[in-house]
Design a protein around this nucleic acid. Structure first.
Lengths: 197, 197
DNA sequence: CAAATAAGAAACTTAAAGTATCTTATATGT
DNA sequence: ACATATAAGATACTTTAAGTTTCTTATTTG
């Protein structure tokens, strides 16, 4: 019993994808325990039972390895967007999921990563494939079908509006949004702009 | 002729506020020339004609000294908010000024500073004295007097809405907003929410 | 003009990034 | 099953910059 991270060591020599997965998991474990600045290549190597040389064969530097570790988890599986029966609750659901996904590992490391990778904009980390929001598209499609929203009202700007405001909150305060904040964004800003009158 | 930064050196020995101002100016000069990661204490000391010991007597670490250098410039002198005669242009003016002030030194260093200072939220750097926006208050006050906007429409959330969206853009893309983006924020989002119908 | 204070120079310690070299386990092709 | 290629893992090394320490000397202040 009680086996925190690794196996008994000296089992076998891991390779390829198996080894890589173990390393990235070690990165996430380190990131949970300490600040980004205190996560070292030595520490990662030790925790994953390998050596720095192995890390540098796969990633160019610390920022890259941490980014890889986060990307594995962060592009949240948007598989399905739950249908609560009305736009309001659907959008609140999306914002709550941002709360979960963005504030854990990501916000802890994101500043360091961007800083060390040079002038790489935050956008390219968060949306490797552009800004559009799949989940918002789905939710608004439904709303149009229900007759809650008129199709013409949905511009690209409005499509991402709740997510933009939520991101601003999360980054600004570095903690999950409150339910009050979510309600403000949806009820005071988003709904009045898209609902049919 | 041609004297980029410093004087002839070995003039006199500066002290107190005079010395401090020269150091912070050197920090800003360094920050203009290179990335945050490449700004070193040695470099700052050399450029300002002093030594590392002097820097460490005043600031605890690199992040602190850079933050001090930026703070001197960033809390933009909101002295007066120009009156263009209508809310729309007034708000566009505020967003354009964010464009100027936020994207120069700040966005270059902000990620590194936050990362190195620990879990300090961005908010506390950007708004040492709370979130409310003085300039937006002034502009909306005028709008209410003109009869463009009804006083009850102005909630705290709506008060900072254009600024929140602008900040999101600037941070996300790490560059000034385009005029199109400013127009979208104001015309598609802000005005429809506050204008009398 | 004496004493206190802080500037400036220089040498030092430490931490961690990143590199290079070598040995050896494992996979793969024949 | 065996030879060969490939990559893992250990270890030692170089380099860079942060942060510290010590000492000398200019300037302020009383």
């Amino acid at each position: 019993m009680s086996n925190t991270q690794e196996q008994d060591k000296l089992k076998t020599r891991r390779r390829g994808k198996e080894l890589e997965a173990a390393i990235l998991q070690a990165v996430r474990a380190e990131l949970k325990e300490r600040e980004y600045a205190a996560v070292t290549m030595e520490g990662i190597a030790e925790r994953s039972g390998t050596s720095k040389a192995v890390l540098y064969r796969r990633w160019a530097n610390r920022a890259e390895i941490v980014l890889a570790a986060i990307r594995e988890r962060v592009p949240l599986p948007l598989e399905e967007v739950p249908d609560f029966g009305n736009v309001r609750d659907d959008v609140c659901g999306i914002l709550r999921s941002m709360n979960l996904n963005n504030t854990q590992l990501l916000s802890k490391a994101i500043y360091g990563i961007i800083s060390e990778l040079g002038a790489m904009p935050l956008a390219s980390v968060l949306f490797p494939e552009g800004r559009s929001s799949r989940s918002m598209s789905i939710v608004l499609q439904r709303a149009v079908e229900r007759g809650e929203v008129s199709g013409e009202a949905v511009t690209p700007r409005l499509l991402t509006l709740p997510i933009d405001l939520a991101r601003n909150e999360i980054i600004l305060y570095n903690e999950p949004m409150s339910e009050e904040t979510i309600a403000e964004i949806v009820d005071q800003v988003f709904l009045p702009l898209i609902q049919k009158r």
